[in-house]
Simulated assay, not measured.
Amino acid sequence: MSQNTSTSTSTSTSALAGTGVSIDIRNVVKRYKSMTAVDDVSLSIEPGEFLTLLGSSGSGKSTLLNIIAGFISADSGAIEVGGKDLTKVPPYRRDLGMVFQHYALFPHMSVWDNVAFPLKRRRISKAQVAERVQRALDVVELGHLGKRRPTQLSGGQQQRVALARAIVFQPQALLMDEPLGALDKRLREQLQLEIKRLHRELGTTFVFVTHDQEEALAMSDRIAVLRDGALVQVGTPVELYERPASRYTAEFLGESNIFTGRNHGVDEGSALVVRPEHVRLSAVGSALPTGHNAVDGVVREVVYLGSGLRVEVALPDGRHLITRSEVRGALTPSPGLPVAAHWHPEHALVVRDDTAA
């Protein structure tokens, strides 16, 4: 990108920037007949924060986002934005931007008219519409494509148009429902960086929905993990990855080696979590680092990942253990090789085993 383009984009972004607002979700419940889609969820989102709602299909993350947006009514509970109760306020009066997974662009309109649409609905003057639309398109680096139709754009460009349309009226917060789910890996990673840049420069509160754990880790200030409509854990990416509170969070957010059992003095079941990158492999019978825990096994599979190796070790009791190591380590693993898998106790975490819940 040229220096002039960078300066222009920065100027346009600052012109669209607003002050992020807090979003408070208070004891929200949503049921569909016998199914509870959102189960008494309470969550406070800080002004200007990038919070991701993360969960598998059916976890309630999109339902909760749509309740914030006003497209779905909760059975009970409240939604406050900037300290104002919006629970009964219709979506078009909430002043919230929304980006959908499948863009929801008007195919018969030009890119420029798609972005201008929310401004025209708000009866903003033609001069202001023209200025704001151009700024928004410049921010997403599509200022030169305003005359094209959405069908003449790539998937990534269409998603940028959707982003421009969502920020053009300077919403209090921007809500995104799996906006990158339909894109290929390379383009998805590119737009992750674009969205992070927008968040940083706009200062707007972002609420982002995804089922992709890597996406959540890469983009978020905090992550709220949902399961079966309930809130499981909230924390920064580092907190959730390195200090999961339960087995479910540990297994959902990244690969984990899990050893189950019962923790003395604790009524419920417990699990010992060791992340693959903390497990080392040595030849059976060789001296191990002092204090390391170890289990013997046999290499079952080796996968080359470019930056390292993913090695699966079969243990005597039939379980499998995963390690991630350097390509040119001290030991070259190959299928059938007997090994000792070991780790330092400080890299093992005892958590609540909630998988049977």
Rank of each mutant, 00 (worst) to 15 (best):
V266N: 13
V225Q: 01
I223M: 07
E251H: 07
F252H: 03
F259P: 10
V279H: 06
L202R: 06
E201Y: 00
A218I: 01
I223P: 04
D267G: 08
E268S: 10
G203C: 10
G203Y: 05
T260H: 13
R275I: 12
E242M: 08
S256Q: 02
L231V: 03
R262T: 13
T205R: 03
R243A: 15
T236L: 06
L217W: 04
N257I: 05
Y248C: 06
L240Q: 14
R243Y: 15
F252T: 04
S246N: 15
H264L: 08
S220M: 03
L253A: 02
R227Q: 07
T236Y: 06
Y248F: 15
D212M: 03
H211T: 00
D221S: 03
S246L: 11
P244W: 05
V207Q: 07
A230C: 02
Y241M: 11
G269V: 14
S220Y: 06
L240Y: 12
Y241V: 12
L272A: 12
V273R: 14
S246E: 12
R243G: 06
Y241L: 12
E239F: 08
Q233R: 00
Y241K: 13
R200P: 09
A230V: 04
A224Y: 05
E277F: 11
E268W: 11
V273L: 08
L202I: 08
F208P: 01
E255F: 08
T205W: 01
E277H: 13
E242Q: 11
E201D: 13
V266Q: 11
A216N: 03
R275C: 09
G261C: 14
V279E: 05
R262Q: 15
M219L: 04
Y248N: 11
E268P: 12
L226V: 09
R247E: 15
T205K: 00
S270F: 09
Y248H: 15
